[in-house]
């Protein structure tokens, strides 16, 4: 609890780090901030062309379906990967100055989260322009899903970033796992298309209900039911609690290990 208050007292530092990350990332390049959007848009374009011409999925308006899954997934994957490496990346600061260490993963995840918000805004415009529609309830539903995903990314980042200080393998392992994980989540395919014996396995994946929820809201596959979110909410709470506990335990010796 004391730690939490301390972190809140350092919110200006989080703010500063997020700004630094967002603004510093593409500084010096001509397109600058636009690069944040070029990447996912190209990704969607490539997937769209290949899927709709080669694999021919029987999903209507497949591009909207893709957007609803890939944009949130990109956030999750980038946030966890960047979060995992954030202590090492700021080793300099960590070794020399005292501040609550949890500020670093929080800032890393938050920075990606703000990026997600911006890309989502653009995506919603694209969805509306290309024949998609959004129910009015998305204004309430979307924030809940966003927060769910935010804390999931934060929980994983806390655990992985702390372990990464002791074993640098974690950073590389995370990238590999993310690559596999994306195909275990119904992003390029719909959950219904999964063979029944595998559905149980896919729904164990905590990201599955989150992505399905996004699809409900942005693609309007079906109504969003609260029951769908119980699993990820419980998962989030446990993950974040364990995450903070592990992080606090390991962060004591960060400056000696770095």
């Amino acid at each position: 609890m004391k730690k939490l208050i301390e972190i809140i007292n350092y919110r200006d530092m989080i703010d500063g780090l997020v700004r630094k990350d967002l603004r510093g990332r593409y500084k010096g390049s001509i397109l600058g901030f636009i690069w944040n959007f070029i990447n996912p848009l190209c990704q969607i374009l490539v997937y769209f062309i290949i899927f709709s011409n080669v694999f021919k999925p029987d999903i209507e308006k497949f591009h909207i379906f893709l957007i609803a899954g890939i944009i949130p997934w990109n956030f999750f994957s980038e946030a966890v990967i960047q979060g995992t490496g954030c202590i090492i990346a700021n080793a300099d600061m960590t070794k020399k100055i005292y501040f609550p260490r949890a500020v670093l993963p929080i800032a890393a995840v938050t920075s990606r989260f703000i990026n997600l918000l911006l890309s989502l805004t653009i995506c919603i415009v694209i969805i509306l322009l290309t024949g998609g529609r959004l129910g009015t309830s998305f204004i309430f539903e979307l924030p809940i899903i966003l927060l769910l995903e935010y804390f999931m990314a934060l929980g994983f980042s806390l655990i992985l970033s702390a372990i990464n200080v002791y074993f640098r393998d974690v950073e590389y392992m995370t990238s590999v796992i993310m690559m596999i994980w994306i195909w275990m989540t119904p992003i390029m395919y719909s959950f219904e298309a999964v063979p029944e014996q595998l559905q149980k396995f896919v729904s164990l994946n905590p990201m599955t209900p989150v992505i399905i929820a996004y699809q409900c809201v942005l693609y309007q596959t079906s109504q969003l039911y609260l029951e769908m979110l119980i699993y990820p909410i419980v998962f989030d709470v446990i993950l974040v609690l364990i995450g903070f506990a592990i992080f606090e335990k390991l962060s004591v010796h960060f400056s000696e290990e770095l």
Binding site: N9, Y10, D12, M13, D15, G16, L17, R19, K20, R23, G24, K27, G28, N90, D92, M93, K95, K96, I97, F99
Partner: peptide
Amino acid sequence: LIELGAGFHPDMTGRENIYTNATIFGVKK
């Protein structure tokens, strides 16, 4: 005053870095 300039971002201006750096020391904006 142990390590000076830790956390400076080379591409940001001096003024911007003052803000970021001071908040690292736990100072409110």
